[in-house]
């Protein structure tokens, strides 16, 4: 081994090992298919590649009809949440080396939102719920002469976790309650309500608590923790929902 490497040109010796990985993707073309179908692809990949790179390789080199969403490719835009080996993940944050490549990798669209094509779902119901919780600052006061609303470090920390949301829908579409009841606001809307309910500069917490104190609001949550485990930003989603539940019971944040 040692002699072999010594004699080989440096380029070959430094070669990064690559693997043939099988991806089984749940395809659906609304113009042709009655029902989704599974299709497999063999792709040559490095351990440092991500599932998104595998999808790109398939689309660019094997089958241009494969349809999926992505934009930033760096876990910021929230476009590419999908179900990878049965769990919701961002394709751009899932490294091949973290998956068991001795078996095929199953990739399918997130569940509970209308399937449009291949890995693309209609996100409109999801954003509809997001808009309903009034996810913007509503302050009754006008900022002082300094033009800023001053907030203490502790007050800012109170809702820090829920500011990190990128609206990828991994949480909402991992929720068994949401799968059967599409009317449920879902974890992401509650996370984004939490972000303003517990913001000391905002004055409309009461309104949002009223919106979520609904048949289809926080009380639908059955604490399965799928959302917390799915969130690519590591947000403690179930904890945030629990905090909103107790704020409703107290009648104030």
């Amino acid at each position: 081994m040692a002699t072999a490497t010594a004699e080989k040109p440096p380029a070959a010796a430094d070669a990064v090992p690559s693997f043939t990985v099988t991806l089984i993707i749940r395809r659906f073309d609304p113009e042709v298919d009655e029902e989704p179908r599974w299709q497999d692809y063999d792709v040559e990949l490095y351990g440092t590649d991500r599932v998104l790179d595998a999808l790109h390789k398939i689309k660019w080199e094997q089958d241009g009809s494969l349809t999926f969403r992505r934009s930033c490719a760096h876990g910021i835009c929230g476009s590419d949440a999908m179900r990878i080996n049965g769990r919701n993940r961002l394709a751009c944050k899932t490294l091949i080396k973290d998956l068991d490549i001795s078996k095929p990798i199953y990739v399918e669209a997130i569940k509970g939102l209308p399937l449009e094509k291949d890995l693309v779902v209609d996100m409109e119901p999801f954003f509809e719920s997001f808009r309903e919780v009034q996810p913007f600052l509503q302050a009754n006061s006008t900022p002082g002469t300094g033009k800023e609303r001053v907030q203490s470090v502790a007050d800012r920390a109170r809702f820090d976790d829920t500011t990190k949301c990128i609206l990828c829908a991994a949480c909402t579409s991992s929720c068994p309650v949401f799968w059967t009841d599409g009317q449920y606001f879902g974890p992401a809307a509650i996370v984004n309500a939490h972000r303003f309910i517990f913001d000391s500069r905002d004055d409309q917490a009461k309104v949002r608590l009223d919106i979520l104190n609904d048949k289809e609001g926080v009380w639908r949550c059955r604490t399965t923790f799928n959302c917390s485990e799915a969130c690519p930003r590591g947000i403690q989603v179930t904890q945030a929902i629990a905090e909103v539940k107790s704020a409703i019971m107290r009648g104030k944040p």
């Binding site: 599974w38 049965g86 991992s174 068994p176 399965t224 799928n226």
Partner: peptide
């Protein structure tokens, strides 16, 4: 032998199974 045409079973953890 093809996988089921329906999606795979969601692989939740303790929280999901306890529910």
């Amino acid at each position: 032998k093809k996988p089921r045409p329906a999606g795979t079973l969601y692989r939740g953890h303790e929280g999901m199974w306890s529910w």
